[in-house]
Amino acid sequence: MTAATEPGADRVVEAPPALRLIGIRAAYERVEVLHDVELSVRAGQVFALLGPNGAGKSTTLRVVSGRMRPTAGRVLVAGNDVTGTSPEKLARQGVCSVPEGRGVFPNLTVAENLRMWTYRGGLRRSDVEEVTYARFPRLADRRRQLAGTLSGGEQQMLAMSRALSTKPTLLLLDEISMGLAPLIVAELYELVASIAAEGFAILVVEQFAHTALQVADRAAVMTQGRIDMEGTPAEIGPAVGDLYLGSIRAEGSTTE
């Protein structure tokens, strides 16, 4: 099924969005955690999905990457309905998902990790190594080291090397800054921006809202399993602080 046959799809001639979620609902056990989530990410766009913990951001990514089946709604990648497709199939089709805090195999060496990236169809080992080592010479020095012994920043570079070398149609990044020092986070986001510049679509879930907003083209705020607000970073930015640190207006405090 293609987007062209969708009643709600864009009728414009341009290519369908890299990712489109239509009416997604998802539940753990019997508790629904996503209620009717809709969003779309275009090629070359960085889309930041923000919100407090437990809002359903990571669950949204789980649904998109095929790790969780939605109870309702559809997932379209580049116009194709991929709802219910297995994560490995999606990965081979070009959905690259870097899960929260663990985008690398800690007990494999750097070189072995890179070899795992070649499961994305048509890639050779040498291609992956070339791209990665050219971008991150530090990893080349550590190619025989276990990934788990790398510093947090280096691990994240290794994880991002998958995005760089596999040229995904859609890149999903889940809290890549978690546990990293601000300086390294800034570095990582420069990298995200440069990957976006190559024309990939990127969906970023991030707790450090300001950092993510600096590189995002578009952003949405999620709370309680719903998308509350969507807009440009300039529109979203000012509202975020309240959402994260709570409003004490309810108590009639005078601080605000």
């Binding site: 800054s177 020092a181 601000p182 986070v185 800034a186 991030e206 707790q207 450090f208 809202a209 300001h210 950092t211 993510a212 600096q214 975020v240 602080g241 994260y244 640190l245």
Partner: peptide, 11 residues
Amino acid sequence: YLGGASTGAER
């Protein structure tokens, strides 16, 4: 909480 260029924790 929000990231950005301000101080935060130095390591």
